[in-house]
Design a protein around this nucleic acid. Structure first.
Lengths: 89, 89
DNA sequence: CACATAGTTAGATAGATATCTAATTAGTGT
DNA sequence: ACACTAATTAGATATCTATCTAACTATGTG
């Protein structure tokens, strides 16, 4: 896990919005793109950065690519900043 | 709290390192600058971004400016991304 | 196989970010 | 008032980031 890659990925509002959208359920690239006033190639670049950070995982389903949220990386990165190694609640 | 400002501030490794240094104790601008291979003006810009995001607070002590960590903003921003409004442990 | 659909990659460009040197402000002491 | 130290702001520049259009890849269907 590249902590720098994770925080860079989180630094753009569109990418955080994508993560928020994926909190409800997995979505295809096209469906996600429909929520923004940006072209598909632009969104595709954002998807790549999220994937590089492992904040999302991809699964092909026919012609569609389905993006899934990966919460655990988010938690890892944050606990890295916030505190000690093991902080059992 | 500008969530965007907070995440932008967190996106640079030097700024995250500054926060980590401040976890142990408050430090002056000069002392913080000593930990990096960058000029003071450059660090000063980083301090400003952290202050804008309210991730740190400043207190003047004689000719020195002492920077303090403000954990709560970090937690707020993160819980905003991670989950529901109130997630009492 | 030809075509349509979903999505990505490539290349170009405008705008934002990080960094430096030089100049400025603020506080302390002589 | 002057000099000294700590730190900031200003201005310039190099690099990085986001975005677009155009071209390409992959999958499914008649």
């Amino acid at each position: 896990m590249r902590i720098n890659t994770v925080f860079e990925a989180l630094s753009h509002p569109v990418r955080r919005q994508i993560l928020t959208l994926l909190k409800t359920r997995p979505m295809s690239a096209g469906e996600l793109a429909g929520h923004f006033d940006l072209t598909k190639p632009t969104l595709s670049v954002h998807f790549n950065k999220l994937r590089d950070a492992e904040l999302v995982a991809v699964e092909r389903r026919g012609t569609s690519l389905i993006y899934h949220l990966n919460m655990s990386i988010l938690e890892e990165a944050l606990s890295g900043l916030l505190g000690k190694k093991d902080q059992t609640p």
